[in-house]
Amino acid sequence: MRKKILSRINIALGSAIFALVGMNSCARQLLYGPDPVVKYGCPPDTTVVALYGVNMPVEEPPFTDTNE
C-alpha cells in the first residue's frame, strides 16, 4: 500500500516538475509519466555508457518489421 502511494505521489511530482521546468521544446517524451520513458544518459566511458529505454506498450509487437 505504501509503495502504491509513493508511486502515485511520484507521478504527481513528476508532472509538476515537468510543468514547472518544461525541459524546453526538445523534451519530446515525458520522463516522469506513469509509464516512464526510461531515458538514461550516461557516463564518461563509452564502453559502459547507457542508453535509452523506450516507451513501449506492455505487449510488444513481434519483431518481424525490421528493414522489411
Binding site: 524546453n24 526538445c26 519530446r28 538514461y40 544518459g41 550516461c42 557516463p43 555508457v49
Partner: peptide, 11 residues
Amino acid sequence: REAGRHVSYSC
C-alpha cells in the same frame, strides 16, 4: 535545444 535539435548532456 533552443533550435529544436535533441542534443543532451549525459546524466
